[in-house]
Simulated assay, not measured.
Amino acid sequence: MDCGENIQLMGTRNFPRCESALHSEIEALRWAMENMLQHSPCQNFGTDCKDLIAMIEKPKEWPRFATELEKIETLQICFPDFKIIHVPRARNQFPDFLAKTARTFRRVLLFIGCSIPVWLPRPPQA
């Protein structure tokens, strides 16, 4: 996202099943951060998961996720102005659609770009 909280790049990937929904959220953030290092000077990330933000702000309070949070902390060093914000679900419909679509693919799906490629289904119009 840019400074005005507008989406600059989006992406999706279907991951193998994770231990929990929160593990999936952390894995998705890690993947996004790694890719932004290669594709964009992006510093701002958004999520509709308040627990993920709490985990990043106070990792010691989430010992079950210590290994995953260590990876995020290491990546944060590469983002001097790293920021993660809460995006309400009402404003997060498009990324949510991409995530749900990725889960339906039976083969590996990996996408990063500024717009939805033609081979991905389109979100329903509101």
Score class of each variant (00 low, 15 high):
M1W: 13
D2S: 02
D2G: 01
C3T: 10
C3P: 03
G4K: 06
G4M: 15
N6Y: 15
N6A: 15
N6Q: 15
Q8S: 12
Q8H: 09
Q8D: 11
Q8V: 14
L9H: 09
M10E: 11
M10A: 14
G11N: 11
T12W: 00
R13P: 06
N14V: 04
F15N: 03
P16W: 03
R17P: 04
C18T: 00
C18R: 02
C18L: 01
S20M: 06
S20K: 09
L22S: 08
L22C: 09
L22Q: 10
S24C: 10
S24P: 09
S24W: 02
S24Y: 03
E25G: 09
I26T: 01
I26H: 00
E27H: 01
E27F: 02
A28F: 01
L29T: 05
L29P: 09
L29H: 02
W31H: 00
M33L: 05
M33S: 07
E34F: 08
N35P: 05
N35R: 08
M36W: 07
L37C: 14
Q38N: 14
P41N: 15
P41F: 15
Q43S: 08
Q43H: 09
Q43A: 05
T47P: 07
T47Y: 07
C49L: 06
C49W: 08
K50V: 06
D51T: 06
D51M: 12
L52R: 02
L52M: 08
I53G: 01
I53H: 02
M55A: 05
M55Y: 08
M55T: 03
I56T: 04
P59E: 12
K60D: 14
K60Y: 13
E61I: 12
E61V: 12
E61F: 15
W62D: 00
W62N: 01
P63M: 05
P63C: 02
R64H: 12
R64S: 06
F65M: 08
A66V: 10
A66K: 06
T67S: 10
E70T: 05
K71G: 13
K71E: 12
I72V: 12
T74C: 13
L75R: 04
Q76K: 13
Q76D: 09
C78K: 13
C78R: 13
C78S: 13
P80L: 03
D81P: 05
D81R: 07
K83Y: 13
K83L: 11
H86L: 10
P88A: 04
P88W: 15
P88Q: 12
P88H: 15
R89Q: 13
R89H: 14
A90V: 14
N92S: 08
N92M: 04
Q93M: 12
D96K: 01
D96R: 00
D96E: 12
F97D: 04
F97T: 01
F97R: 00
L98W: 07
A99D: 07
A99V: 03
A99I: 00
K100C: 11
A102Q: 03
A102S: 10
V108G: 02
V108F: 08
L109M: 10
L110K: 08
L110C: 06
L110G: 03
F111H: 09
F111N: 04
I112L: 11
I112T: 10
G113S: 04
C114H: 11
C114V: 09
S115D: 15
I116N: 09
P117C: 02
L120R: 11
P121N: 04
P121G: 02
P124W: 00
P124I: 01
P124N: 10
Q125C: 13
A126C: 13
A126F: 14
